[in-house]
Design a protein around this nucleic acid. Structure first.
Lengths: 346, 346
DNA sequence: ACGCTCGCCGGGAGCGCTCCCACGCAGGTC
DNA sequence: GACCTGCGTGGGAGCGCTCCCGGCGAGCGT
């Protein structure tokens, strides 16, 4: 009697991953029938007993379809690729991202995050393209270039989006115009009487793509105001020593209002100023951004710019629309809302 | 003359993704040769002129290999799958994760993050298994069960790791025993004279898998100490009202030392206590965890438990070893280090 | 000069899956 | 009884890739 090796042998099952052919054999039907049953193909009607046999066989073998084979055959995938941003995401972006992921999964997309690991734009794009994603949502700070977009499109990506401070040619943009935040902070400070306005520029290199436009927006608004209002840039690393050094020369700067990039830098600077005996908001008004809980715990309570990101649902719909109609001209959607929240520090 | 449609037509290239056969045609060689050249196959020697022609053809067409086809043929992938934890990761974990990702990529693995989106353990595992990952690193809070591990192994995963507070049968564990943190905090508070010790239990449901063992560890150490030391659990939501309510009844609790789960909750509670006029550390000593920058900005400066995660390099080596030798008995590695950092709040 | 070796390249099969098409067998009509 | 309709099922091809194997031409020893 011929030896039939390692089929349905529980112990060695890990070495023989079951395929649809195995399921078919066990159920006594053809591979085609297995496919019809497991995919609930409506065009082909399969009798109820057969369905049950197939399902039971699949369960017994622990059959899981092979995504690669399926998408190879189909000629396309339902993968939406999101390169992981290299800056650790704050709670705001995390929540936005989770919502988006959930919404996309409602449209039957599979969201996959994938690190770029310091590759340059085009190399990273090539690595991403190997997965043949149907859509790519690239956080904009990753500096996706027009060439990279082209690589992705030629690999079959139907929709390429950037989400971040700047747009890229050929790609749709969910523009998060960080200048808005600077505008908003400046307007708030000016309105409350500041004229010599400081703006913190974080030392962390990864924050530059956000920090620069926030500062630029602040400049715009201050320049538009006229009446001798000025802007001073204040480089500041995220540590106590750097903050102490800045605070020590604070009075020489003559700054009466400061926008601190975000709430965390605000906390850092506020502590340093207070340690130096500088009154907030008495001598210097202060406003942060992101509306973190910690801002409300400071004394004085921190004024902040609240940032509103769009709903994941709306974005998922947009992505789906572009995937269905890839010929669309790239659109720019301005999705970042900013409102000043006045508390006590300004 | 026969019409040759859309080959090398730049405008329509997005509708005809180039394959290795296209490259071969353009370079005037066979598909096999293209494969040898692009993969630098050492067994087969290809002449330099041929190599150049192939590379040029690939570049001109914008050829990117099809990962699915490749892994289908190979029978395995180099994908390491990491389900995304549902709790937003702090800077500590973010950095650890980036390091791990980088280290794995040095071993030629591709790290992919993939959301489970609220599927139960076994359903999620089935979804993950479709990708045929060679290894899975599951953050432990996701409650991966033994069944789920089995599904993954039967789909060909050579290595399944949990990383988190508890282990799972059949899977290797990078045990991050959160009780250590509680042990450490308790020892610190006891040593500095606290006897009636409070432990904050965060209200956020997602934090439970971390909060419970931290509290339990604290209990252990306090119980071991004897001499009438007691533990009181203090439920606290991450908002000001909740903290104010707790602070209002603080003196009735008679607590002289508190472990706040982490630095953020510490900041929340410290503010509420100070607003209530309760002296820290005079009436109540306080210690947080995670050693965030913000702790150093509080007054008094916050004592904290510094958490040390293992180096990504070591873990990548471990993962690689298990992949190479899948027959290994599941190992449990205790990878979480905790040391108390004394500042001013205790 | 003949045969043998060796370097370089092409043919072809098959990974797991889906879907077009063909086939067989009921039950009904002429 | 021959034919048709239609439902349920199986055969088979091919998605893009890699790698075994076989072939061909050039160089060299005898």
């Amino acid at each position: 009697m011929a030896q039939i090796p390692n089929k349905s042998a529980q112990q060695t099952a890990q070495y023989a991953v079951p395929t649809s052919a195995d399921v078919a054999r066990l159920a006594g039907v053809s591979r085609a029938t297995v496919s019809y049953v497991l995919n609930n193909t409506s065009a082909v009607r399969i009798s109820e007993p057969t369905r049950r046999r197939v399902h039971e066989a699949a369960k017994e073998l622990g059959y899981v379809p092979h995504a690669a084979a399926r998408s190879l055959r189909a000629g396309h995938t339902r993968v939406v690729l999101m390169p992981t941003p290299q800056i650790p995401a704050g709670p705001l972006f995390s929540e936005f991202f989770n919502e988006l992921q959930w919404a996309l999964s409602r449209f039957d997309y599979t969201v996959v995050q994938y690190g770029s690991l310091g590759l340059t734009g085009e190399e990273a794009a090539r690595a991403w393209a190997e997965l043949r994603p149907v859509a790519v949502l690239a956080p904009g700070a990753s500096g996706l270039g027009a060439r990279a977009v082209d690589v992705l499109k030629r690999s079959g990506a139907k929709a390429v989006f950037t989400l971040g401070p700047q747009r890229t040619e050929g790609a749709h943009a969910l523009l998060m115009d960080q200048r808005r935040i600077g505008n908003c902070a400046a307007a708030h400070l000016l309105e409350r009487g500041s004229r010599r306005i400081g703006v913190v520029i974080p030392g962390e290199q990864g924050l530059k793509p956000f920090a620069r436009p926030r500062a630029e927006g602040l400049r715009q608004t201050v320049a538009g105001y006229g009446q001798g209002a000025t802007v001073t840039e204040l480089p500041l690393a995220y540590d106590e020593e750097s903050a102490a050094r800045l605070a020590a020369r604070w009075r020489t700067l003559g700054i009466d209002g400061v926008f601190t990039y975000n709430d965390e830098y605000a906390m850092l600077l506020m502590r340093a100023l207070q340690d130096e005996g500088i009154a907030v908001p008495g001598e210097t008004a202060m406003i942060g951004a992101d509306d973190l809980v910690l801002g409300r715990l400071l004394r004085p309570r921190l004024s902040t710019v609240r940032i509103e990101l769009p709903s994941g649902q709306k974005l998922a719909e947009l992505v789906d629309r572009v995937v269905r109609d890839p010929g669309m001209e790239p659109e720019v959607h301005d999705v970042l809302g900013a409102t000043a929240v006045h508390r006590e520090s300004s």
